[in-house]
Simulated assay, not measured.
Amino acid sequence: MDFKPSREIDIAGAEMAVATYIFSKDLLDSQILIDSGLCRGDRGTLRTLEPRTEIVDDVINLLVSMLKKTAPPCKWYMPMTIMQAVIEGRRLSSPIVARIARDYMPSKVDEVRWIYQPMWCLGHWFLMIIDVPRKRLIHLDSLHNRDMEPKRREAMEKVAPELEMMTVGDGWLKNPAVRRPRFSTFEFDVPTVPQQDRNS
């Protein structure tokens, strides 16, 4: 492997054999190692998980497609496609929107409780969770930076209305008498994350 796993990674036996196979510098980067049905990941893609390497969006999309397979219909795990288009100021074509709805939005909008949308802003990954029952846009970030918070909030407040627009129409409501969730009106929320004790 190009890197030596640290003690914190704590892998041995079969896990070490799998890690060696994935991260081997002697095997082809173009070899497909994961095919989720919705997207594929080759060795080169997975090698971006190595320490001190920038993770590419294909890895995030692979994770999303795997999570959605076992998730209940009330949880939507969204791909990067929508966020990327919004941030870049592009409109998605109707066939792409229809495919995303079919593959990633398994319930009606009045049944969804949480929407998980990976976000990329100013060279950094973080997660937006749309908490529908509490009407919150939650910003989760393992490396939270208060100085960057306004830009990340701005990105979230651009993506939420796009997700809302995708659910317009009577076909998106199980119960037509229920009020449609308005993601664009939800409050921004940054949960307090306990600081890790560096001495422990």
Score class of each variant (00 low, 15 high):
Lys108Val: 02
Thr185Ala: 15
Glu50Thr: 01
Lys135Pro: 08
Asp2Lys: 14
Thr45Gln: 07
Trp172Ser: 11
Val190Leu: 01
Gln31Trp: 05
Thr192Leu: 08
Met105Thr: 10
Met83Leu: 00
Met66Val: 10
Ala177Gly: 03
Leu92His: 09
Leu27Thr: 14
Asp189Thr: 15
Ile82Gly: 03
Arg7Gly: 13
Leu62Lys: 07
Ile9Ala: 02
Val193Tyr: 06
Asn175Cys: 14
Gly169Pro: 02
Leu127Pro: 03
Pro51Asp: 11
Lys158Gly: 02
Leu67Lys: 11
Pro161Trp: 04
Lys69Phe: 09
Phe183Leu: 13
Asp29Gly: 07
Met166Pro: 01
Thr45Leu: 11
Asn199Trp: 12
Glu164Leu: 03
Ile115Arg: 03
Arg180Lys: 11
Gly37Asp: 14
Lys158Phe: 05
Ile115Lys: 06
Leu122Pro: 02
Met128Asp: 09
Leu27Ala: 14
Asp141Met: 08
Arg43Leu: 12
Pro72Lys: 02
Trp120Thr: 04
Asp141Arg: 04
Ser93Pro: 02
Val178Thr: 15
Val190Ser: 01
Asp26Lys: 10
Phe23Gln: 03
Asp42Pro: 00
Ala160Asp: 04
Ile11Asp: 09
His124Leu: 00
Arg182Gln: 11
Ile32Asn: 09
Pro73Asn: 13
Gln84Met: 07
Ala177Ser: 09
Asp189Leu: 15
Trp120His: 10
Asp29Met: 06
Glu88Thr: 11
Tyr77Val: 04
His144Arg: 06
Gly89Met: 08
Ile87Arg: 01
Asn61His: 04
Thr70Asn: 14
Val18Tyr: 03
